[in-house]
Amino acid sequence: MNAWANIRTVAKRELGAYLTSPLAYVFIVIFLLLCGFFTFMVGRFFERGEASLVGPFFDWHPWFYLFLVPAVGMRLWAEERRVGTMELLLTMPITAWQAIVGKFLASWLFLGLALALTFPVVLTVNYLGDPDNGVILAAYLGSWLMAGAYLAISCITSAMTRSQVVSFILSVVICLFLILAGFPPVVRMLEGWAGSWLVELVASFSIITHYDGLQRGVLDVRDVLFFVSLIAFSLFVTGVILRGHRAG
């Protein structure tokens, strides 16, 4: 009970920090513009003539997130360390994991807010046709989980450094690996020289492989579990890194 109150206090502060910074609004606008542009122009939503968001809308999310989520997550710990507020936060009567989870939840909620603001595209597709809204909901959930996974990785890189720029670049690189491991062209290239078990192993670590199922409306427990455990593991690593810094 007490733990939850602490997490909520930290999350509330963090969310407040997002919503008072102009950068957050710039982020939301860029995200929405990208979504709109790729769905209607590049994704040729109208020309497709099908009442579905899978191809034209959700397909792009792993790539948007690749740059946008590290931008949201980069300040989480790097800024605390640079300004020295980490010392303040961690000498309060709360545990480190409460602080880590609180900060993560705030950023994740913020990403959820950005994602929720794409609702006009759902309205559009419902107006034009008769889509399966269950599938759309599952895809949204998958997209949000994927954003959480990226964000948790950004938490790690943010805890590693005082510099937000370094944190950003590192997490983009790591996330790129996680995408490419299951990206069809890469998988095909791997198949050329590696055994199929290896290809499958690598692909099973990919965010894309697990997102694909969710995106198509298949709520597979294994996919959800993949994202949840990736988040949990990353937050755990964040805790280890923070402890490492303090131990000197």
Binding site: G16, A17, S21, G84, T85, E87, L88, P93
Partner: peptide, 16 residues
């Protein structure tokens, strides 16, 4: 920690 109050060096505070 509950019993303690702490003012760290350079008095950090959340600037936002």
């Amino acid at each position: 920690k509950r019993l303690m109050g702490y003012l760290p060096e350079n008095a950090p505070a959340y600037t936002d």
